[in-house]
Design a protein around this nucleic acid. Sequence first.
DNA 1: ATGGATGCAAATGATTTGCATGAAG
DNA 2: CTTCATGCAAATCATTTGCATCCAT
Lengths: 153, 153
Amino acid sequence: MNKPAVKNNNGNFDPVDAAEFRSILNSHSLKITKPRIEIMKILRSNHKPLTISEISGRLKGKKTDLVTVYRTLNLFEELGIVSQIDFKDEFKRYELIYDRHHHHHVVCRKCKKVENVETCLLDGIEKILIKTGYTEITHSLEFFGICSSCNNK
Amino acid sequence: MNKPAVKNNNGNFDPVDAAEFRSILNSHSLKITKPRIEIMKILRSNHKPLTISEISGRLKGKKTDLVTVYRTLNLFEELGIVSQIDFKDEFKRYELIYDRHHHHHVVCRKCKKVENVETCLLDGIEKILIKTGYTEITHSLEFFGICSSCNNK
DNA sequence: ATGGATGCAAATGATTTGCATGAAG
DNA sequence: CTTCATGCAAATCATTTGCATCCAT
């Protein structure tokens, strides 16, 4: 996926992404439903990993059951649409998978602020793994620290 | 697995580590108990992150309650003795923290085999973060892929 | 002696499952 | 109209907590 991570401000899909989303679901005889579309929009309009309850809280109208949110994220994960991110607290977080190779995260251990870290240094390591015989390589990388504003208090 | 009672090199502390372990606990007015020592030995004689139930299963005699294992690992984490590792399945894993900067892991998505990855490339990224004002930086890095033996089946 | 540690039982909280109803193709 | 998705209630499973007892210092 080499699509620019451009989104418009209301969280809607651009036509290309909408088509791709539909075709993934279609190819698995899965249905395009309101909860799935809404959750996809929420993921797409946020550039940090979100917990289940954050996603649930952002659903307008609040009519969507928590269970549906769980089921939808599990489904998206199986379909390769989202990736699960671990910040070493009690919550699982999810983000769109095409961001995975573009940035990682720094999490302040005090205020929990999340910032992105841009890097391509890992390509070297992946090449080594390929030589070892690994295929379909992915990785997950998170940094933790105390941010400058917490340090200044 | 092997569980010789007292004499096995494999699970025993060398004098230095034993002293360090004791002094960490002492400095917090914590007690040096059999479960804590046993769990420390298990962590020390394994070079991969272990789940709670793996640790529990390796405790000889099986007299130690699961609750104690949980409490001990949480304590060790607070004390900075172990680090929690996430392999994107349902289990938390723990490993001794002084391994953290020496290697990371590749996990085969099929057979779940764990291998180590040696690298220092991340030092560059940490330096950038330090310039941004972060302190006390740590990171967690895991790779996932399909290993060569799984690929050959 | 005494404060911390353990074991057991019970509670908690996130996530999952069963089933009847509702909506998408 | 057929299949898959949703909501609700109830179940599950890992992890935590309360409390009486036990043990290291």
